[in-house]
Amino acid sequence: MLKTVIQLLLTVAALAIVLNKTDIGRLTSLMSHANPWYLLGAILFFNISKIVNAIRLNRFFTSIGLRLSAWYNLKLYYLGMFYNLFLPGGIGGDGYKIYVLKKNHGLTAINIFGAVFWDRVSGIFALIFLSALLIIPSSFATLYPGEMVWIWVIAGATYPLSLLLTWLFYRQFMPVFIITAFESLVIQATQVISAWFILMALSATANQIDYLAIFLISSVATILPLTVGGAGAREVTFFYALNHLGLDVNTGIALSLIFFAISAISSLVGILSRIRHEKSGEPLPAASE
């Protein structure tokens, strides 16, 4: 309980710091006048990323001998995504998936944990790789030209390191390494496209590479278990990074808040599916359904 209270306080504090230093009137105006057609594009690509994510996770499940139907796995994934909104660092849904699969399918928790954990790690490697690729042509390169060689090193070393760690610690996932690495890139790329649609909805056509680079960097920040569902962490990252580059903070905060709203709306599919099953009295679907 104490841990949860601390994380709630950090979330509120982070958002309060950002909103206190933001032009609320302009932020509200930006969001209220956002182009709805571009927002629909953002919702579409966000959910494409989540569907591909569910497919990737199912490959890891198959590698440990857990065979789930695509539909069952997708519903479980969206339900986990809903729980991620309310628990720190976006890991609550992962814990729920491990619990349900251990209870219903007879595998050890450590094997299921390995699949869920390595699914997360493969996503982080893709996130780091694409972040580096977007930093290279961004304004950060102009400000810190000497440091760009290290960004190139990071980009070049990301997947060799990922391959090495997979071989050392999770060798059972080696047969699916290439396809899951590709899917990880697709997941992060479609989220970047979703963010781009939000920028277009906000009529932010200048410095888009900078906003998208910070978007990916802020996604790394949301992984840290400091705030509830990553809320506040992304906004703080946008606020300080955009201030550092001398860019419009309001656009970045609006992008962050709208992206969170899209995530929240999309995750309702998971909880609505569960409520429907509970009200109808039907059992949860079997893995083969």
Score class of each variant (00 low, 15 high):
L8P: 01
V12K: 01
A13N: 05
L15H: 04
A16R: 05
V18C: 11
L19D: 01
N20E: 03
K21W: 00
I24P: 01
G25E: 15
N35C: 03
P36H: 12
W37E: 12
Y38F: 15
L40F: 12
G41Y: 06
I48M: 13
I51K: 02
V52P: 10
R56G: 13
F60R: 07
L68E: 06
W71R: 14
Y72L: 03
N73H: 06
Y77A: 09
G80R: 03
M81E: 00
M81W: 00
Y99R: 12
L101N: 03
K102R: 14
N104K: 13
I112P: 14
G114C: 09
R120T: 12
V121P: 11
S122N: 13
I124N: 07
I124H: 10
I124R: 05
A126Y: 08
A126D: 09
S131M: 11
L133V: 13
I135R: 00
P137R: 06
W152S: 09
I154A: 15
A157Y: 05
Y159H: 02
L161S: 11
L165M: 13
L165A: 14
R171E: 12
F177N: 03
F177I: 03
A189C: 00
T190K: 01
S194F: 02
F197R: 00
I198N: 04
I198L: 05
I209V: 15
L212C: 07
L216C: 10
T222H: 04
A231Y: 14
F238R: 11
L242W: 04
F260H: 08
A261T: 14
S263K: 07
A264N: 05
L268I: 12
V269K: 02
G270K: 02
I271N: 10
I275V: 15
E282D: 15
A287W: 02
E289S: 13
E289A: 13
